[in-house]
Amino acid sequence: MVAIQQTRTFNITESKAKLNALVTDAERGLVTHIVTGGRVVAHLVPGNARIIDDDPTLETMLQAVLERSAAEAGRLNATDGRFTRLDDSLGRVLAWCWRTDPEVFTKTLKLYLELLGNRVEGKVRLGDLRPALDRALAVRLDTSETASAISYADGRWQE
């Protein structure tokens, strides 16, 4: 996920005119976002930017975070009978998924619900987690992004 910084956003024409300066900025660690039609279509990133371009590696990393978070949420649920809090690492990972690829977000959230259901020995639905999920996602997403992400996932599951 690349956090979009409005001050580092340029359209294609501006990017072409400033390419040398933008490359120098990338060498110094700055990210530039290139937009067309009001949406980001590319990022100019430093050469040492952390990019996960290997699906098995991504799946392994996601699985580890989801299992740890499900175990913790399952433990908390066993004590108070409700899902009131999910850990911030889950919120950060799900926010990254949403901003990177809504389909990855949907798949990851669905897997999390399954893992959590296995922990508490029952089916866990999206609505069961909604307040806690809203709080977890708030570490990286604003309220409207959170609503969009959850609505998107819920809509995909209804299809």
Results as ranks from 00 to 15, higher is better:
Lys107Gln: 11
Asp80Ser: 07
Asp87Ile: 06
Leu94Gln: 03
Arg50Val: 10
Trp98Thr: 10
Glu59Ser: 13
Pro56Met: 12
Arg82His: 08
Leu90Val: 07
Asn77Ser: 06
Arg92His: 08
Gly81Tyr: 04
Ser69Ala: 15
Leu86Pro: 01
Gly81Phe: 10
Val65Tyr: 04
Arg92Met: 11
Phe105Val: 05
Glu67Leu: 13
Pro46Tyr: 02
Thr106Gly: 15
Ala73Gln: 01
Glu59Pro: 01
Arg85Leu: 12
Gly47Arg: 09
Ala70Phe: 05
Leu94Asp: 01
Ala73Asn: 07
Asn118Val: 08
Tyr112His: 11
Thr60Leu: 12
Cys97Lys: 03
Arg82Trp: 11
Glu72Tyr: 04
Asp101Gln: 14
Pro56Asp: 04
Ala70His: 05
Arg92Glu: 09
Glu121Ser: 02
Leu109Gly: 02
Leu111Met: 15
Ala95Trp: 02
Glu67Gly: 03
Leu86His: 03
Tyr112Gln: 07
Thr57Asp: 14
Arg119Asn: 08
Asp87Leu: 11
Ala73Phe: 02
Asp80Arg: 07
Val104Glu: 07
Val93Glu: 00
Leu94Gly: 03
Asn48Pro: 01
Lys110Leu: 11
Arg99Asn: 06
Leu109Gln: 04
Asp54Met: 10
Arg75Met: 04
Asp54Thr: 15
Arg68Lys: 15
Gly122Ser: 10
Arg68Asn: 12
Leu76Gly: 01
Asp54Cys: 09
Asn48Val: 11
Lys107Pro: 03
Arg68Ser: 11
Leu66Gly: 01
Leu66Phe: 08
Val93Asn: 00
Asp53Tyr: 06
Gly47Phe: 10
Leu113His: 03
Phe83His: 08
Phe83Glu: 00
Ser69Leu: 10
Val120Arg: 01
Glu121Gly: 04
Asn118Lys: 00
Thr108Met: 12
Leu113Trp: 02
Glu103Gln: 13
Ser89Phe: 04
Arg75Trp: 02
Gly91Leu: 02
Arg75His: 14
Asp53Asn: 13
Leu111Phe: 07
Trp96Tyr: 13
Glu121Gln: 15
Met61Phe: 11
Asn48Gln: 08
Arg75Gly: 06
Leu66Pro: 05
Leu44Tyr: 01
Thr108Asp: 10
Leu44Pro: 03
Val104Thr: 13
Asp55Gly: 04
Asn48Ala: 11
Leu58Arg: 13
Glu59Asp: 09
Glu114Pro: 00
Leu66Trp: 03
Asn118Ala: 03
Leu76Asn: 00
Pro46Phe: 14
Pro56Thr: 09
Glu103Tyr: 11
Leu94Asn: 01
Pro102Cys: 13
Glu114Gly: 08
Leu44Cys: 06
Thr106Arg: 15
Val120Gly: 00
Arg82Cys: 03
Val45Gln: 04
Asp53Leu: 12
Leu58Tyr: 09
Glu72Phe: 05
Phe105Tyr: 15
Pro46His: 06
Ser89Asn: 13
Asp88Leu: 05
Thr108Ser: 15
Thr79Phe: 05
Tyr112Val: 01
Pro102Trp: 11
Leu44Thr: 04
Val120Met: 07
Thr79Ser: 09
Asp53Glu: 09
Leu115Ile: 03
Asp80Leu: 03
Arg75Pro: 00
Val45Asp: 02
Glu121Asn: 12
Asn48Thr: 06
Ser69Cys: 14
Leu111Cys: 09
Leu109Val: 14
Ser69Phe: 05
Asp88Ser: 08
Thr100Cys: 12
Ala64Lys: 13
Ile51Asn: 09
Lys110Ser: 12
Met61Ala: 09
Leu90Lys: 01
Ala70Trp: 00
Ala49Phe: 08
Val120Ala: 09
Val104Ala: 14
